[in-house]
Simulated scan of single mutants.
Amino acid sequence: MYFEVLPAKKTKAATVVLSSGLGGSAHFWHKQLAALSTDYQVIVYDQLGTGRSPAALPKDYSIQHMSNELSELLDSLDINLCHFVGHALGGLVGMQLAVDRPALLQSLVLINAWSSPNPHTLRCFNIRKAILESCSAEIYLQTQALLLYPPDWIVNNIDLMQKEEQLALRHFPDKTNLLARISALSQFDNEAQLREFHVPTLVVANKDDMLVPWQRSQWLANKLPAATLTLFDYGGHASSITTPETFNSLLLEQLGRFSVA
């Protein structure tokens, strides 16, 4: 599995693991790396079956598989304690990791994540599956942008977005793998385990998220014993990209609160 370890500029730094959403790409976090790597060792990775981590995923592929894969990677790097930041699908991986290995996690940040399927998000993924079956990767990525970003952000950043889409095309995942990943996140349900969570958690949501209703984050924060909710009015589904300064400031505040000196 492809990964990068960015060393911190200070000694004895805590480790932050960044896990992206459905696309699975380490590049998703490029606007966070400079801000984080001053005080933290940062690990990013291309999830198995995406980008630079080619693999044939099994038909029964699940969030549990993804948690196991990340756990093995962290063990190979001798990481026994870290902060975990997950966006959407990455947040589900973090929640599974919190069940499997709670002692590994200093804190969790869950961005536009959810604890069980909801009708709106499932419809969005059904549309994605239909596009994968009948259209080009270019059309899939254009549709994805409508779910990730606010309309005005697209208008004001169209050149940048088109460059990012060209990069995504060069590393576009195998269709079978992408369908398996959509199936995995569509079936994820850990409602019965939420009360068992004791990892300090920040839940982040955006009211203008077109993919995941912000109320799902509110529900999640209310159910987790050690969670707080930060709710933004603007940013869409990918606020780490659309409002990086605001997002990075919040992230650094959260990590500082739970880092060991």
Rank of each mutant, 00 (worst) to 15 (best):
residue 3 F to V: 12
residue 3 F to K: 12
residue 5 V to H: 13
residue 5 V to R: 15
residue 6 L to M: 11
residue 10 K to Y: 08
residue 10 K to W: 07
residue 11 T to F: 11
residue 12 K to H: 13
residue 12 K to I: 09
residue 14 A to N: 14
residue 17 V to N: 00
residue 17 V to T: 01
residue 18 L to W: 00
residue 19 S to V: 03
residue 19 S to Y: 02
residue 21 G to T: 05
residue 21 G to C: 05
residue 29 W to V: 06
residue 30 H to P: 07
residue 35 A to S: 12
residue 37 S to A: 03
residue 38 T to K: 01
residue 38 T to P: 02
residue 39 D to Y: 01
residue 46 D to P: 02
residue 46 D to V: 01
residue 48 L to E: 07
residue 48 L to A: 10
residue 48 L to S: 08
residue 50 T to F: 10
residue 51 G to R: 03
residue 52 R to Y: 05
residue 54 P to F: 04
residue 56 A to W: 04
residue 58 P to I: 09
residue 58 P to A: 09
residue 58 P to E: 05
residue 58 P to M: 07
residue 61 Y to S: 10
residue 61 Y to H: 14
residue 67 S to Y: 01
residue 67 S to F: 00
residue 67 S to K: 01
residue 68 N to D: 07
residue 69 E to A: 10
residue 69 E to W: 02
residue 71 S to Y: 13
residue 72 E to P: 07
residue 74 L to F: 14
residue 75 D to L: 15
residue 79 I to N: 14
residue 81 L to R: 15
residue 82 C to P: 09
residue 88 A to C: 10
residue 89 L to H: 04
residue 91 G to F: 01
residue 92 L to T: 04
residue 95 M to F: 02
residue 97 L to V: 01
residue 100 D to S: 09
residue 102 P to W: 05
residue 102 P to R: 13
residue 110 L to I: 08
residue 111 I to S: 09
residue 118 N to C: 05
residue 118 N to Q: 06
residue 125 F to R: 14
residue 128 R to S: 07
residue 140 Y to I: 08
residue 142 Q to D: 13
residue 142 Q to A: 11
residue 143 T to E: 12
residue 145 A to T: 11
residue 145 A to F: 07
residue 146 L to D: 12
residue 148 L to C: 14
residue 148 L to E: 14
residue 149 Y to D: 09
residue 150 P to Q: 08
residue 153 W to M: 06
residue 154 I to R: 04
residue 155 V to L: 07
residue 156 N to M: 04
residue 156 N to P: 01
residue 158 I to P: 03
residue 160 L to D: 04
residue 162 Q to C: 00
residue 165 E to V: 07
residue 166 Q to P: 01
residue 168 A to R: 07
residue 169 L to G: 10
residue 169 L to D: 10
residue 170 R to F: 03
residue 171 H to N: 14
residue 172 F to D: 09
residue 174 D to C: 10
residue 175 K to C: 08
residue 176 T to Y: 13
residue 180 A to I: 11
residue 185 L to F: 08
residue 188 F to Q: 09
residue 188 F to A: 10
residue 189 D to M: 02
residue 189 D to K: 03
residue 191 E to P: 06
residue 194 L to K: 12
residue 194 L to W: 12
residue 196 E to H: 14
residue 199 V to T: 15
residue 199 V to H: 10
residue 201 T to S: 15
residue 204 V to F: 03
residue 209 D to G: 06
residue 210 M to V: 10
residue 211 L to M: 15
residue 211 L to F: 07
residue 213 P to F: 02
residue 218 Q to L: 11
residue 218 Q to P: 06
residue 221 A to S: 15
residue 222 N to P: 07
residue 224 L to S: 04
residue 224 L to Q: 03
residue 225 P to C: 03
residue 226 A to T: 04
residue 228 T to Y: 11
residue 228 T to H: 13
residue 228 T to G: 12
residue 229 L to C: 08
residue 230 T to L: 05
residue 231 L to M: 02
residue 232 F to D: 06
residue 234 Y to C: 05
residue 236 G to M: 04
residue 237 H to T: 13
residue 238 A to V: 12
residue 243 T to N: 13
residue 245 E to M: 08
residue 247 F to K: 08
residue 247 F to R: 08
residue 249 S to K: 11
residue 250 L to W: 03
residue 254 Q to M: 08
residue 256 G to A: 14
